[in-house]
Design a protein around this nucleic acid. Structure first.
Lengths: 216, 216
DNA sequence: AAAAATTAATTAAACGTTTGTTTAAGTTAA
DNA sequence: TTAACTTAAACAAACGTTTAATTAATTTTT
């Protein structure tokens, strides 16, 4: 009964499996998570994974496809917003990415893992498509800012994006280290994350300002 | 016969196993690499891994411990070099990191993987120790630059390092994507990497300059 | 220096689990 | 009655590790 169509609506049960698998994959890796682990956590039978998604790998693809559409829509809406300046939009993008990184850490851990891995060709292709689409939109935004004279010329969009994604990812994956070094282990989780997000936000905004903004 | 002492010299055979395992772990992940895979690639018997390193996990620890000493020495030598200005030293650090990232990609992929993983407590502790030591050294370097007036006050060392490591890592893990988008697939590997390194280098140096250097 | 004894290195085979997937029987709902 | 759903059980394959036997190297004794 399962299908791989690009346009696919998932049932509640399937979404439940997807969400739980996402957490487990992010936590223990794809290879480190067994179908039985997923079945147990989602309180379903082992066979259901193959039944719904064809295979374990099919489940992984389903996880990514569910996010692809969401990101695309959000970016396209922002880009067409006429009420904000290019740099304001850039700030919104930074904020959105940080929020998304922190509110959906498991998913982004999974993305990072998948990028490191060289298996799962269809999954990698899907990730690359996502990324290319997003980057094209941001490129258009930067070109817009260059036309109005707000932004400098000769901006390497990919390096800029690598810095945003890479820094956010690095901060996220090493947050325990950060917490330890700065003696913030006593702080409640929520408060620590709030501070960390604030620091990351101002750091990235300073970087983007230095790279993007014209001095005049 | 195997041992876990901090000071451990490895035999040629052990080093051979370590090097090959490093590549395989980086390529397919720790869980994605079987002891039999390692044995086959290193042309040894399966039992040799347990014999030499106690276990598969012991082998992973051995891989990291071999790098720890090297990095520490290099940084300490640089920091004590009186012939260079603080910012020159910073540039050297950037260059060294980039060189190391690109010349030892498998190892750094493995580090990235291990940071994402939440298993392997002893390995994570070792990585954190490495990182803390390195960051302390760089902190001292920055404080030195602040004393001479070369650097700004209020510099978040960890955010700065997160940007360097994160950006380098992101560029490395997505280099195929970068290559594709920029129509550089026809270029020889060597030439492409040279260009990519150059771009990354100037990008990071611009970032560091904007964050570190005083304007006066 | 040769022979014997001891330790180290290496091997193939087997161990008990766990893996992803399939099957075939059963249940539920339309 | 038919179709979709769910289940427990079984499957073969791969996993990390251990064992016991054999070869190679080293040390000790003669």
């Amino acid at each position: 009964m399962w299908c791989n169509s690009d346009i696919m609506e998932y049932t509640d049960k399937q979404v439940q499996i997807i969400d739980i698998a996402q957490d487990l994959f992010a936590e223990n890796g794809y290879d480190g998570t067994s179908v039985r682990d997923i079945a147990k956590a989602a309180d379903i039978n082992v066979a259901m994974v193959s039944y719904y998604f064809g295979s374990k790998e099919g489940l992984l693809e389903a996880i990514f496809s569910r996010h692809a559409e969401y990101v695309r829509l959000k970016l396209e809406n922002l880009i067409q917003d006429k009420s904000q300046s290019p740099f304001q939009k850039m700030e919104v993008i930074i904020d959105s990415y940080i929020d998304k990184y922190f509110s959906q850490q498991p998913f982004h851990k999974l993305v990072a893992r998948s990028q490191l891995s060289n298996s799962n060709k269809p999954v990698k292709d899907m990730l690359n498509d996502m990324k290319k689409r997003n980057q094209d939109l941001i490129k258009r935004l930067i070109q817009e800012g260059q036309k109005t004279g707000d932004f400098k010329k000769n901006i390497d969009v990919q390096m800029l994006m690598s810095t945003m994604l890479g820094t956010a990812n690095q901060v996220m994956t090493t947050q325990d280290f950060y917490r330890e070094v700065n003696n913030m282990t006593d702080l409640p989780d929520e408060e620590f994350l709030k501070i960390l997000k604030k620091k990351l936000r101002s750091h990235l905004q300073a970087l983007f300002k230095a790279i993007l903004k014209n001095e005049d």
